[in-house]
Simulated assay, not measured.
Amino acid sequence: MTGTESRNIVVRPAEPGDWPAVAELRWQWIVQNGAAPQALEREDFVRHFVTWASENASSHHCMVLVRDTEVIGMAWLAIVQRVPTPHALERASGDLQCVYVVPQARDDGLGSRLIKATLSEARHLGLERVTVHSSTRAIPAYTRTGFENTPRLLQARVAGPTP
């Protein structure tokens, strides 16, 4: 990518008009990973996704990567309210989800830009921490942007196939 092309790229909060393009990115991601949807047509998924994004805008903040007018990447920050303590009556944390950049725009630092912008949004919202469940390929991008392993964060699968 040349410097001129990179100047036409911005990271910003998604707007309602972006939802169909974001839904298309989500569909594309699933198909690229070999899990072609069989129970749902693309148009039905996009329609459902647009409704879901609108209904969940208070708990799921989406950042988009835009080249000129085309949405080429997304990242979602799911916000979880935490139990109050005597030290902090209002607490929340975040989970970084669905970070995706179209294949032709990868490996130029755009994913890191998207992650950094999402973490900036998390700071602005006053979140205590942000977690992420990463693919092996993306781990370096997350560590470059401040994520680290911790022995205290554990997970348990409660749905789907067991390992």
Rank of each mutant, 00 (worst) to 15 (best):
V71R: 01
Q97F: 09
R152P: 01
T145K: 02
W29S: 15
E90R: 08
L89F: 13
T131C: 11
H133A: 12
M1R: 09
G73Q: 01
L89P: 12
S112P: 05
E148N: 11
A53Y: 05
H124Q: 12
D107N: 08
A36Q: 09
A156D: 10
R113W: 01
E128K: 14
V130C: 03
S93W: 06
S134A: 09
I115V: 15
L65I: 14
R106H: 03
A159T: 14
V46M: 04
Q38F: 02
A75L: 08
N8K: 13
A39E: 14
Y100K: 06
E24D: 07
I79L: 15
N8E: 10
V99A: 11
N149E: 13
S54F: 10
D44P: 04
D68C: 04
Y100N: 03
F49M: 01
A57I: 14
P140V: 03
G146C: 05
Y142A: 02
H61L: 13
T145D: 07
L125D: 04
W19L: 08
P37H: 13
H124N: 10
D68F: 00
L77M: 11
V80F: 11
T136D: 06
A36M: 11
I139R: 14
L65D: 04
Q81R: 01
V132L: 06
G111L: 02
P140N: 07
R67A: 14
T150F: 08
Y100C: 04
E24H: 05
Q28V: 00
L154W: 13
E90H: 07
A57S: 15
R157H: 14
T85R: 02
T143R: 04
A35D: 09
V99T: 11
R152E: 12
S134D: 01
P37Q: 13
V102H: 02
W52V: 11
P20L: 01
K116P: 01
Q104L: 15
R67H: 15
R26F: 00
T145G: 03
R7C: 11
V10K: 04
H48V: 10
A159R: 14
F147S: 02
P103R: 09
E90W: 02
D95I: 04
T69L: 12
G94W: 00
T136Y: 07
D18P: 02
P86S: 03
S54R: 15
F45Y: 04
T131W: 05
R82K: 15
M1Y: 08
S59P: 00
C62F: 05
D107S: 10
A159C: 12
E41T: 03
L154F: 13
P163A: 14
D95W: 01
V158I: 14
D95C: 04
W52T: 13
T150P: 02
G109M: 07
E15Q: 15
I9C: 12
F45C: 00
Q28S: 08
E5G: 11
T51V: 15
R137H: 15
D44H: 11
D18W: 01
S59T: 07
R106L: 02
A36I: 11
P13N: 00
V64H: 09
G109Y: 06
N56Y: 14
R129I: 06
R157E: 09
T143Y: 04
